[in-house]
Design a protein around this nucleic acid. Structure first.
Lengths: 136, 136
DNA sequence: TCATTCTGTAATTATTTTTATTACAGTACA
DNA sequence: TGTACTGTAATAAAAATAATTACAGAATGA
């Protein structure tokens, strides 16, 4: 997983909540996060796909929350952002000739899934509203 | 975090448990994991530093478990291996001029710490012995 | 005792992943 | 109809990971 996606997405959502309905440009968001606007727009596309935000094209356009911050929990945000397993498996191609190597991925996966479930459950206890409240 | 360190370390530990006291070379471990022996030796240095394994230099040398597999729980292994926060913060330098950017890292950290605690607690329910049993 | 086979470790290079940049079509506003 | 945005692709740059090479030092055993 590209593990900077979660903080970026949460940062975006927090700023959008802060803007309370106002439309915010990717330029502005990128400025606060201190990353490239194109990367922000990509993350927004993903958040949009998951129904967290919506955006308006054209002059004066930008993004805004698509639902109330009370209705967005951080576990959902995590799930929307993760694309591989959290405990790592990038380029993991163990030797199939080894009895351990042959089966380890399958066992790692069940281990990961279970542990990640605990993580998500914990994150889900907090909504975006709870998180954003800390900035006020 | 370099998130392939956890699977590598767990793979090493599983193979060492499998070898039941026999000394295993980094060459052999690397062959099963399908990575470079030098990387294995680096991981072993870390596992050694944390008291999980020990190794013997010289001809016929190699590594072996330093304690019983029942006494190694996977949460401890995770902690020994992780070096940054799991939910990601690589090159996260938000704009200090922005009220949200200025404080977000602090809030992300408490969020991460809490969520990671849940993850580790889950992993800690399983020992290396439990995990290795699956290969028998 | 000395060739052999390992570990430990540093230095360098290669590869992969992530991020930034550039570019531009399309949309909405004023 | 110019201006300020989004959406998106393509490319380049930078950063992170992993592999390779190299070699000193340790233990073994012939």
């Amino acid at each position: 997983m590209n593990n900077s996606r979660f903080p970026i997405s949460l940062h975006i959502l927090t700023l959008l909540d802060d803007a309370s309905g106002t439309v915010v440009s990717s330029e502005y968001l990128a400025g606060s996060i201190n990353i490239n606007p194109v990367l922000v727009r990509k993350e927004i596309m993903n958040l949009r796909k998951h129904g967290f935000v919506d955006s308006k094209e054209g002059k004066g356009g930008g993004s805004f929350l698509a639902k109330s911050a009370e209705d967005i929990n951080l576990g959902e945000v995590y799930k929307a952002v993760k694309n591989s397993n959290i405990l790592g498996q990038s380029k993991n191609e163990p030797n199939p000739k080894c009895p351990v190597g042959r089966q380890i991925n399958q066992h790692l996966n069940t281990l990961y899934d279970d542990a990640e479930k605990a993580l998500i459950e914990n994150l889900s206890r907090q909504t975006l509203a709870d998180f954003a409240l800390k900035f006020k």
